[in-house]
Write a protein that binds this DNA or RNA. Structure first.
Lengths: 208, 208
DNA sequence: ATATTTATTTGTCGATCGACACAGAAAAGG
DNA sequence: CCTTTTCTGTGTCGATCGACAAATAAATAT
């Protein structure tokens, strides 16, 4: 009951990684099958046999991204010793990952499919859900800090989580525009400069 | 020496505005000529006669955006009484403009063409330059504040300007993901909570 | 060895992309 | 009037899109 038939001649994992980098650099719509065929060095019928259609290939590429680059960014969410350290680490690692030499700049999850057009609605919604999951993860970390007494329960933690997610997503655009790693780290520092003021602010039912 | 020939039967300005809203909602690549023909209610030869090619039409749409919605956002940069008020107003008006009912969410300049592909390099670079101009405008306002003695000259104002631009750009993605106006206003407040700490921080040659 | 299963190569499918030719229609100038 | 100029509607161009059929090649199972 071992493998039957002719074994495939290309490395599936390596081809997927190359496809992921093309999607990362050009987005879902901006990447054509021709681009993928060239980058993966695999003919189109073999791609369809191994991955299904373009949409499913993109899905696998996104899963790979979340398991690698994404994991390095959001891993701190559970490993960091405090909520504040978690956020600071997420922002700083983002600055590093978004500016890795010889890698596409910014984040695949953020930049992969922002504009809706003819046939990318499913893909766009999935990326949006992944972004929402990251937001939820950050908010839960804050609420856990409140539950443990590490953080006060006065501030509007949802607004604070949205703020830091907004900064993290904005960094993708800055990275795409050529911002240096140092510049993005400085952005992270500026965002963390707001922490003390935000934490010691009582909720008033309004914006904050 | 008045107008010769048959006058055009459609309102050029109105058609341009409708084209702008399509580009705004779907981006440059995501918008096809068919989309434009349907939205503008003008046949394609008339579009080409009045606007040139798709790229030039997009350019005019961007110019219109910057003159209207963009002007409302960045106008405060020169009219606000202080640098701090200018930044706060830019963020708050952005929150409003990015969540106007029955208008596309987010900013055309930020979301219009982020991913490079076959034939959008010129357009992409132009939007990037417009983003860079906004950043420069904000930085100049800060430097003017320093020159007038309104602000100290210790802090790394370039880093601070980059930070607020990053927040403003991140708000476009949040808006696209469905964030409410109230949520975006709260993000603006969180960003402004960093101000005092940033202004009273002396430069140390590092990130801050 | 033969049959079976799967991968690869070549070629192509209908649909859609941006862009325009061409001819007819509607205004001005003479 | 008639000529000229410009705009409008129909149709279509070559290129490219994502996706796959058919035929060939290479492995395993019996």
């Amino acid at each position: 009951m071992t493998e039957r038939g002719r074994p495939r001649s290309f490395d599936r994992a390596a081809a997927l990684r190359r496809a992921m980098e093309v999607f990362w650099a050009q987005g879902y719509d901006g990447t054509s099958m021709s681009d993928l065929i060239a980058a993966m060095d695999v003919n189109s019928p073999s791609i369809y046999a191994a991955f299904g259609c373009k949409e499913e290939l993109f899905r696998e590429a996104v899963a790979l991204y979340r398991a690698t680059e994404g994991g390095r960014i959001w891993g701190a969410m559970t490993t960091a010793p405090s909520a504040r350290a978690a956020i600071e680490t997420v922002l700083r690692v983002s600055a590093e990952e978004f500016t890795r030499p010889s890698k596409p700049r910014g984040c695949l999850i953020v930049l992969g499919a922002l504009n809706a057009d003819d046939g990318n609605e499913t893909v766009r919604r999935e990326l949006q859900e992944h972004r929402a999951e990251n937001m939820k993860m950050l908010l839960l970390r804050l609420k856990r800090g409140v539950a443990k007494g590490e953080l006060p329960n006065g501030p509007d933690w949802r607004a604070i989580a949205t703020f830091y997610i907004t900064v993290q997503q904005g960094m993708s655009i800055q990275a795409r525009d050529g911002a240096s790693r140092k510049a993005l780290l400085a952005v992270a520092d500026c965002a963390m400069a707001a922490w003390d003021g935000l934490v010691s602010c009582r909720r008033d039912g309004g914006a904050l």
